[in-house]
């Protein structure tokens, strides 16, 4: 998870089935970008809390709140959750991206955050960046046009 304020760009690279979650408070020009890999932390002893949607989001929101983010102003955008490989006859394989996206949406909704824009699913990787001066989120991919969320 990366967090910055005022100006600059934060980037997370090559989101496959992972999800990138950008938080932005336009008044403070405060932004954070979280990169999660799995939906729920199952082993409570696992210290790597930013790897999971549940603990990662809780920690990111805690930090942003400490820096003064106001929930009602927060602009949240998510990207990723792709299915990189499709194995015919095995529909369950590689569904982790979809599960990640669902979990992230549920947690954000439960915590009262509105998702302003998202670019999830399909079968390609995304590099996601957040410009904290403007709040602009850019999605770069291989073989698809650049997207602004």
């Amino acid at each position: 998870m990366k967090l910055t304020r005022g100006q600059g760009e934060i980037i997370t690279y090559a989101l496959g089935s992972c999800i990138g979650i950008a938080f932005y408070d336009p008044v403070l020009k405060l932004g954070a970008l979280l990169h999660i890999m799995l939906p729920v932390r199952q082993n409570k002893d696992d210290a790597n809390i930013l790897k999971y949607a549940d603990t990662g989001l809780a920690e990111t929101i805690r930090k942003l709140t400490a820096f003064g983010m106001v929930k009602s102003r927060a602009i949240v955008k998510i990207a990723g959750g792709a299915k990189m490989f499709e194995i015919s006859g095995n529909a369950n394989f590689g569904n982790i991206g979809e599960r990640n996206a669902q979990t992230v949406r549920q947690i954000l909704q439960r915590d009262g955050f509105h998702i302003r824009a998202e670019d999830c699913g399909a079968n390609y990787a995304r590099t996601m960046s957040l410009d904290v001066a403007t709040g602009d989120v850019v999605i770069k991919t291989f073989g698809h046009p650049e997207k602004h969320l």
């Binding site: 690279y13 090559a14 989101l15 496959g16 089935s17 992972c18 890999m37 799995l38 199952q42 082993n43 790597n48 790897k51 792709a82 990189m84 490989f85 499709e86 194995i87 015919s88 006859g89 095995n90 394989f93 590689g94 982790i96 079968n123 390609y124 990787a125 590099t127 291989f142």
Partner: peptide, 27 residues
């Protein structure tokens, strides 16, 4: 063995496939 599945994409995203698949077992 399953039918092969192919992808042409970013190295990082392809490598996370096995890592996410076994993510609860090992890093």
């Amino acid at each position: 063995l399953s039918v092969p599945s192919a992808a042409v994409n970013m190295l990082g995203a392809i490598l996370t496939v096995p890592i996410a698949e076994y993510g609860y077992e090992t890093d």
